[in-house]
Nucleic acid binder design. Structure first.
Lengths: 265, 265
DNA sequence: ATATGCATGTCGCAC
DNA sequence: GTGCGACGTGCATAT
């Protein structure tokens, strides 16, 4: 049976089905040269050489070559591709011994992917439009903004003085003082605080000397939650934990933005 | 024009093309219930709520629902999906106001993806077989094996004693002694060593006391290369660096395997 | 270009 | 299940 279907109810998608492997070759050449996104469902093997090296024998998989010349090879399980190549590859497709080969080469770091097709079930080319803006709520930056806007979400009487304060190991998220004038270092996390978060906060405290008699430096880790091991370490080091929900922060940031807007109206 | 193409030159792939959105609905239901991998090319918006939250308005994208009920939403650029959901979702598709909605819900952590379709260009269902073994060369584990097999690749006279030795901050990759009986802690990296690598090695040294008079503990960081900042820190801390190429390690491991084989033959 | 740190990281493995 | 570390991490951002 020869199926030769190469159109759909629109011009954004072209679906190619052929019986013989080589018949796909001119289509691949065309779609690659036109910078389409290409989906290939087929039976192929993959060799990768670069930062590491890997190989996988023949199997049925999905190969995606995107407009930006990034390459993904997906199996039927998992979010991560089994092999991939970041954007900006030089992609070369060629015939050899009645087989189709596809090579994706990237410089800096030099790495390449070599795919040998035994069979192609279908090639699909896409020319699609996506101009929508992606909005991610409650980034760590927004959490910081929320704390600066409404410091009492950390504790009553907290007075932020600076943010992104530079110390030797990095940048302190928020720095300020409590009601008694004790210096406070705040480490924010949008995700559950881990032992690493605690260690980082401790580093900041160690690096920042504040030798004033009668004042005790406080370290506060603020995150939606904390892992058990992190909590143990935190207590041992005499640091504090405060639940801070990114969603709450988002609301505060939004409220602030609204009030700014009304100022302008 | 009504295109109603739903077969290919094999039974591994089904391609569905319809003019009206709702017509896709029964196919989605069917493919989901049969645990196929499904590709959907369409115009849709996505809301994500979970560990964080995000939204993106209508746009033309590729949606993949895998056999393991993981979900990927890919745009035409980049290796990473714009939205995704790890394996094990409860997936629910439903019609509402002549629109198709798809919801993927995951527990622990609780998070969900809601997709609203404005248009579907094509639905492709896959039932493919991939039993090939994936082989990754020169993992950190193999580097360790290489060092244990042929310790002189680190330095002449090195005598490994143990590997994955447990100390407070974690596991020491390789532990041993030099020719003069000084204890040696080795940290292996398959990628360029960073400041973090140096810090980690330092932690191991600090955690492992060896109070023998006349003996000096040595810390060796072995990696294919080292960043400039890491090197500065390393020197300051009195630690050592040794270039160790994962590809070289791979060769050593392979040679060892061959020799094992010949032993059995 | 290099360095640094975040991420809905994902994934695998030990407990 | 949870914790912890590795990863060809990818990716954005500051330098």
């Amino acid at each position: 049976m020869t199926v030769n279907f190469s159109s759909t109810n629109n011009d954004k998608i072209k679906i190619i089905n052929k019986t013989n492997l080589e018949e796909y070759y001119p289509y691949l050449e065309e779609f690659l040269s036109k910078n389409h996104t290409i989906l290939i469902i087929g039976d192929f093997s993959v060799e990768y050489i670069g930062r590491a090296s890997s190989s996988i024998g023949s199997g049925e998989r999905l190969l995606i070559i995107k407009k930006d010349k990034s390459v993904l090879i997906h199996q039927e399980k998992g979010v991560s591709p089994i092999n991939w190549q970041p954007p900006g590859n030089l992609i070369h497709v060629f015939l050899k011994d009645n087989r189709i080969f596809l090579k994706a080469v990237r410089r800096r770091p030099r790495e390449s992917l070599i795919i040998e097709f035994n069979k192609i079930f279908s090639v699909i080319s896409l020319l699609i439009k996506d101009n929508a803006e992606f909005i991610m709520d409650a980034s760590e930056e927004q959490m910081q903004e929320a704390v600066l806007r409404k410091p009492e979400i950390l504790f009553k009487g907290f007075k932020p003085v600076s943010s992104e304060k530079h110390v030797k190991p990095g940048f302190i998220d928020v720095y300020g003082f409590d009601e008694e004038g004790n210096p406070v270092i705040v480490e924010l996390k949008r995700t559950p605080a881990t032992r690493e978060s605690v260690i980082q906060l401790k580093k900041y405290l160690d690096s920042y000397s504040y030798p004033v008699v009668g004042r005790k430096m406080r370290g506060i880790l603020a995150a939606p939650s904390i892992t058990k091991s992190a909590e143990i370490l935190l207590n041992k080091l005499g640091l504090e934990f405060k639940i801070l929900n990114p969603r709450e922060c988002m609301k505060i940031v939004k409220r602030y933005r609204t009030s700014r807007l009304t100022e302008f109206i």
